[in-house]
């Protein structure tokens, strides 16, 4: 049970955060990560629009998109959990397939993002995240000692 990596994609499809917590993923160079983020952003948008279920009228003031799009992708060697915030930021969590409660883990990552990135006066929205306390707090949560 391992959390491999966390990627954060802004609402325009740009990669704004990318961190590996555990060995086990293929090494990709930074350009490949950007392509991966952009591609996933596109596929996610398509998956939302090809929703086969009939559209339900959301209650007034409800800001979440009506269809969530891809929430998780699973293969024999990894599971990708995607969490989209109401403002369109996507958090992508790469874990091993056996990792339980990935939705809770990714939600906790969102809380850390909300606390240390969004509440930081020196962070400009949609820009790459270089925030010390965010790194430290994520590390404390996701890096297992040993």
């Amino acid at each position: 049970m391992v959390v491999f990596a966390l990627l954060i994609i802004n609402k325009a499809g740009g990669l704004i955060y990318n961190r590996t917590f555990h060995e086990g993923l293929q090494k990709l160079d930074s350009n490949d990560y950007l392509i991966l983020a952009g591609t996933f952003h596109g596929i996610h948008a398509i998956s939302r629009s090809i929703n086969p279920a009939p559209a339900v009228q959301p209650p007034p003031g409800y800001r979440r998109p009506q269809t969530t799009g891809i929430q998780s992708l699973e293969s024999s060697h990894f599971r990708l959990t995607c969490f989209q915030t109401p403002t369109g930021v996507k958090l992508l969590l790469f874990t091993s397939p056996e990792q339980p409660n990935t939705d809770i883990v990714v939600r906790r990552c969102y809380e850390i993002y909300g606390d240390f990135v969004v509440k930081n006066p020196f962070y400009a929205m949609e820009m790459p995240i270089r925030v010390e306390k965010f790194d430290r707090s994520l590390g404390a949560y996701l890096v297992r000692p040993g």
Binding site: F116, N120, E132, K133
Partner: peptide
């Protein structure tokens, strides 16, 4: 609590 000062302003303490 929620403030991280960027590297180019490392002297600043809010």
């Amino acid at each position: 609590t929620y403030i991280s000062v960027p590297k180019d302003m490392s002297q600043l303490n809010c």
